[in-house]
Write a protein that binds this DNA or RNA. Structure first.
Length: 469
RNA sequence: UCCGAAGUAGCUCAGUGGUAGAGCAGGCGGCUGUUAACCGCCUGGUCGUAGGUUCGAACCCUACCUUCGGAGCCA
């Protein structure tokens, strides 16, 4: 009962005349009075189905094959032959077809052989991967994940498994989910009426991580080049097509590196992973190009082949101000000190640069406490990589490695030094300049597929009010 | 959370005050080396929920629920 995967068959790894067994799920069955049925069989290994010819003289033709509907699981053994029809080069002429799993009531089977709305598919999250679009997105997601690991591995980066549960309540990147085993109906209180977390599982308040960066920096200060790639959680009640409560994030960190090296790493990284999609998942990209977003191939090819521009934040503001003077209208006003809005980012990357650009050295007041102070006293060594068609795709920075300057930033932002005691220790014991960036994995998948809603590129989405399946 | 839009058959939708429709899916039959085939017939709905206006409400009003889009926040 060893099945051959359909991708191997369709890519020509098996000669016509080979005897082969395949297993998979029926997309459609079409009957012919020529004495056979056509079964379109998918096994998930590639975009295209394998056409299986089931002759009407098979012993179970009337009892099983004639009952096959969309979604049934089958296993078929036969001989690979050149197809007599158009639309496929080869097909499997079955000697036996086993109906492994019947769709017990075709009338109530939610997946019909037609286009469903993405909203409907979210309601059937356990079955939606049987569609072309979710199947393709799943293969692209895998391809990107493998490319991420390959990219870093080839460059000597170590994958660090930073914790999912964190006792640090001050990572400074958004609302956090509490992790607790306390009985909600009977919460222990301290004498002054607050929740007594000393009675909780970890003996202290704990949360799901919002970023692995601070943890991975500790490993950077011994392993030199490291990265995290894992789930991340934000308890923000944000309901948009670009946000999830649970998402995967990639955060590399390099020792002995400055902002320029960081930007170069980001450029090399993006080119590498999107090139992998173009070369390894051409079948799925072709589908997205045809049915989801006509620009997806050219967008990926342009990104892979272009040289990323570099632009100082201060110059970006000047450019935007010049554009306004020339009549360009923005919803949000432009002046030095603002954070760039999506409309500003898109103008820069799509109309000024006409390609990817790393905007660098932002005002310190709009950036995180750990970013390195520049000598001008006004800016920090932060960068955002902007890409046409999506805007910001990567955010990164050189970290402040000097303790006194880090402390000044912690104070200025109203944070408490004791909350960062181990992070500060890194600056006390063998500190070195280092830099890194963060990339939301699902946003990379959106970019690679042209799919609009982030809920459709993760197998089981979690967002405010939604945790089914 | 704020602003806007939408909820009608299993799915996708039409129906703007007078007793509920189509396509697809499903069932039956026909036709065909077919390509999410095609032709005919049949099955299938408390019109999101609860109130209200009206002789009469899918349609008008109110509240709520859900979903989608935008904003904020961000990755």
């Amino acid at each position: 009962m060893s099945n051959t995967r359909i991708t191997e068959i369709l890519s020509g790894k098996h000669a016509v005349g080979s005897r082969i067994t395949v297993g998979g799920w029926i997309r459609t069955r079409r009957d012919s009075k020529a004495g056979l049925s056509f079964l379109a069989v998918h096994d998930g290994s590639c975009f295209e189905p394998l056409q299986v010819i089931a002759p009407a003289d098979l012993p179970n033709y009337n009892t099983d094959i004639a009952k096959i509907t969309t979604g049934c699981a089958v296993q078929a053994t036969g001989v690979l032959v050149a197809s007599e029809g158009k639309g496929q080069a080869v097909e499997l002429r079955a000697e036996s077809v086993t109906l492994v799993g019947l769709v017990e009531d075709p009338e109530t089977y939610p997946m019909q052989p037609k286009r469903h709305t993405m909203e409907y598919l979210r309601e059937v999250g356990h079955l939606r991967v049987r569609t072309n679009i979710i199947g393709a997105a799943t293969r692209v997601r895998h391809c990107l994940a493998m490319a991420v690991h390959r990219f870093f591995h080839e460059r000597g980066f170590f994958w660090i498994h930073t914790p999912i549960i964190t006792g640090s309540d001050a990572e400074g990147a958004g609302q956090m989910f509490k992790v607790s085993t306390l009985d909600f109906a009977n919460i222990p209180k301290t004498p002054d009426g607050k929740v007594d977390y000393s009675k909780d599982f970890f003996g202290r308040e704990s949360h799901l991580t919002v970023s692995g960066q601070l943890n991975v920096e500790t490993y950077c200060m011994a392993m030199s080049n490291v990265y995290t790639f894992g789930p991340t959680f934000r308890a923000e009640n944000s309901n948009t097509r670009r946000h999830l409560a649970e998402f995967w994030m990639i955060e590399p960190e390099m020792a002995f590196a400055d902002l320029a090296a960081d930007a170069q790493l980001a450029e090399d990284f993006l080119k590498y992973i999107f090139n992998a999609v173009l070369t390894e998942r051409a079948d799925d990209v072709a589908f997205f190009e045809k049915f989801v977003d006509k620009t997806v191939t050219s967008r990926l090819q342009n990104l892979v082949s272009s040289k990323f521009a570099r632009m100082d934040y201060t110059d970006a503001i000047k450019t935007l101000e010049d554009a306004v003077r020339s009549g360009k209208q923005f919803e949000f006003p432009v002046k030095w000190g603002i954070d760039l809005q999506a409309e500003h980012e898109r103008f820069l990357t799509e109309e000024v640069i006409k390609g990817p650009v790393a905007v660098m050295n932002y005002p310190k007041d709009i950036k995180a406490f750990y970013m390195r102070n520049n000598d001008d006293g006004k800016t920090v060594a932060a960068m955002d990589v902007l890409a046409p068609g999506i805007g910001e795709i990567i955010g990164g920075s050189q970290r402040e490695e000097r303790l006194e300057l880090l402390d000044a930033r912690i104070d200025a932002m109203g944070l408490k030094k004791e909350d960062y005691w181990w992070y500060r220790d890194l600056r006390r014991y063998g500190t070195v300049p280092h830099a890194g960036f963060g990339l939301g994995f699902e946003r990379a998948i959106l970019y690679a597929t042209g799919i609009e809603n982030i809920r459709d590129v993760i197998p089981f989405h979690r967002s405010a009010g939604q945790a089914s399946f």
